[in-house]
């Protein structure tokens, strides 16, 4: 239903996206995910420097009704978090692929990227 899937990004089956640049990656949730959640009203971000394993809870996104866990698409260390979301969590709804990014992480093992979906495969999965 008009949900955007951006070319050039990596995706997970649990609706996270990754934008890889060298050994770093920005992570967010997809347009499909934000549209399913609707009305995002709170985002709990991890501490900078935290080491996290693929599949572990990366952050929490809350809508009025629901609490959703966002999972780490790959293992690595948290480098930056999108502090703007503390005061404007609705940015995730408005601009999930740009201003609504969640965290930036250092990728521990680039081989993990091979297991992620490309835009085409993600499209089939939603």
């Amino acid at each position: 239903m008009g949900e955007e899937i951006r070319e050039g990004l990596k995706y997970t089956e649990t609706h996270e996206w990754l934008k890889v640049e060298g050994n770093k990656a920005k992570v967010g949730i997809t347009d499909h995910a934000q549209s399913e959640l609707t009305d995002i009203v709170f985002v709990e971000l991890p501490a900078i420097g935290k080491e996290i394993k693929k599949g572990e809870e990366l952050c929490i996104v809350e809508s009025v009704k629901s609490v959703s866990e966002i999972y780490a698409p790959v293992s690595g260390k948290i480098l930056k978090v999108n502090e703007k979301l503390e005061d404007a969590p609705e940015t995730v709804n408005q601009d999930p692929y740009n201003d609504g990014w969640l965290i930036e992480m250092e990728i521990a093992d680039k081989k993990e990227l091979d297991k992620l979906l490309d835009a085409e495969s993600y499209r089939k999965c939603i």
């Binding site: 609707t38 009305d39 009203v41 809508s63 009025v64 009704k65």
Partner: peptide, 8 residues
């Protein structure tokens, strides 16, 4: 129905 447009 839980919502039509948005809860808010």
């Amino acid at each position: 129905p839980i919502q039509y447009s948005s809860i808010k």
